[in-house]
Structures are given as structure tokens and as C-alpha cells.
């Protein structure tokens, strides 16, 4: 097919991921063969109860864990181990406590040999963007929980990743900060056309933010359903036209 452009492969093409953990002699299947695709610029939320394997799936996509079966393709290629093309914002505090806000951002740039002056400039712009201007020299422990997660976001934005993987990034924040962070993430995403996979157990968060919403069942039951609400995010999770989706999700999660 010389001369014809093939359609671009999806950012993430995940096929048949199986993961089983050994547990006191027995075995527990967490992911029974999960498949999903993530297109360029798409925002996908993966919703599920604790223990449904959503964090395990993120670990596999990020390259921290190997699946027992199945494959992950990033823009058509199988990545080898973790890397800056699949940036992760962790649930726990994963900033380096001995590095300042600026140094936390520039470490990833150092790893790819960006010159120092450019590293500093890019860190400054990013800190500015996430509302941490003037806090370049603060240590993570001197920042609030919300500021730390914004710093974690800035750190991975510096990598210009193909996809942003977020593992319950706002679970540890208070309700008000969490909502601010959700709006902030949606702004950033629109501004930079980011491809995002966000894992959460918060139905309202998933409904508010996602283009595509997938429900992962507990007990190794795998993907139960996928929804594409018609209106673009951000949505008011209490809006009446979302009522049906919310009800379906509740039913699915209750049926566990």
C-alpha cells in the first residue's frame, strides 16, 4: 500500500492482559484478560472497587510489572520496562523528599541530557503553570498535599509523555482540594491535548472527567462495561442526563 498513509495506531493498545497472584498456597486471578485501547487525546477513567486489579493494570501499563499473558503496545510498539513515554502520577507521595521542587522536575530532564539552563527554564515554566511559582526551592515536605500532587504532575509533564497514567492521584486529598485538582487536570489536558488513563474508585470523579469510562469488576471479573457520555467533560456528575449511567455503574458495582 505504497503511498497511502495508514491510520495511526492507538496510543495504547492493550490486549488480553492476564495477571494472577499466588496467595497462601492458592492463586487469585486479578486480571482475567483485560483489553482496551486509548486513542490520541482520549481521557479514559477506569473505575472499580478496591482489589479489582486497577492498580495492577496501571503497573503493567507503566512497565513495573509483567503480565502473565497479553501484550501492551504503545503507538504500535511493545515498550521494554518503565520509561518516560508512559508517565505515572502515583497515589502515594512519590516525590523525592531530598530534592527541591525544581530538582524533582529537572531530574527526568537530566536523565535525558537536557542542558542545565534549559532544564531550569522548563522547570520554571512548569512550576508557574501548576501554581507553584516562587516555590522552586521548597522541599516536598514544605508543600501541602495538593501542591505536592501538582508538583508530581509538573514532574511528569516535563517528560512530554505519550500517555499519562494516574493511579488514584487525588485519593489522599480533602474534598475541596480534590475538586480543584480535577478541574486543573481537565484544563491542562485540554491545553496540552494529553492522553490520560486515570484510575479511581470515585464514581463522581470518573463521571465528571472521562471521555470514556470503563468499569472493572472485583474478584477478577474483568471489564464489565464501557460508557461514552455524550457531553464533553467537565460534567456535573449530578446532571440528570448522566443519571442512567450512574445508576448502571452503581448496579454493576453492587452486583459484585
Amino acid at each position: 500500500m505504497i503511498g497511502t498513509a495508514r491510520s495511526a495506531p492507538p496510543v495504547l493498545d492493550v490486549q488480553g492482559i492476564v495477571k494472577t497472584f499466588g496467595m497462601n498456597g492458592g492463586e487469585r486471578t486479578v486480571l482475567p484478560g483485560v483489553s482496551l485501547t486509548l486513542e490520541e487525546g482520549e481521557f479514559l477513567t477506569l473505575l472499580g472497587p478496591s482489589g479489582c486489579g486497577k492498580s495492577t493494570l496501571i503497573d503493567i501499563l507503566a512497565g513495573f510489572t509483567r503480565p502473565d499473558a497479553g501484550q501492551v503496545l504503545l503507538r504500535g510498539r511493545a515498550p521494554d520496562g518503565p520509561g518516560p513515554d508512559r508517565a505515572v502520577v502515583f497515589q502515594e507521595d512519590a516525590l523525592f523528599p531530598w530534592l527541591t521542587a525544581r530538582e524533582n522536575i529537572t531530574l527526568g530532564l537530566r536523565a535525558r541530557n537536557v542542558p542545565q539552563a534549559e532544564r531550569r527554564e522548563r522547570a520554571r515554566l512548569l512550576l508557574d503553570r501548576v501554581g507553584l511559582a516562587g516555590r522552586e526551592d521548597s522541599l516536598p515536605r514544605e508543600l501541602s498535599g495538593g501542591m505536592r500532587q501538582r508538583l508530581a504532575l509538573a514532574r511528569v509533564l516535563a517528560l512530554e509523555p505519550a500517555v499519562l497514567l494516574m493511579d488514584e492521584p487525588f485519593a489522599g486529598l480533602d474534598a475541596i482540594t480534590r475538586e480543584q485538582m480535577q478541574d486543573f487536570l481537565l484544563d491542562l489536558r485540554a491545553e496540552r491535548r494529553m492522553t490520560v488513563l486515570l484510575v479511581t474508585h470515585d464514581v463522581a470523579e470518573a463521571v465528571k472527567m472521562a471521555d470514556t469510562l470503563m468499569v472493572l469488576g472485583g474478584g477478577g471479573s474483568g471489564l464489565l462495561a464501557a460508557f461514552r457520555p455524550p457531553a464533553p467533560p467537565p460534567r456535573d456528575p449530578a446532571a440528570p442526563d448522566l443519571g442512567e449511567i450512574r445508576e448502571r455503574i452503581r448496579e454493576l458495582l453492587r452486583g459484585e
Partner: peptide
């Protein structure tokens, strides 16, 4: 050393020596 910090380092693109 917390596993999450090692993962973060690997995700940022650090080599084993890094």
C-alpha cells in the same frame, strides 16, 4: 528505600546506575 520512589525513578528514565 520505598518501592514507589524506585518506580518513579525508573519512570523518569533513570538507568540502573542512575
Amino acid at each position: 528505600v520505598p518501592a514507589v520512589q524506585l518506580r518513579a525513578g525508573a519512570m523518569l528514565g533513570l538507568s540502573r546506575l542512575g
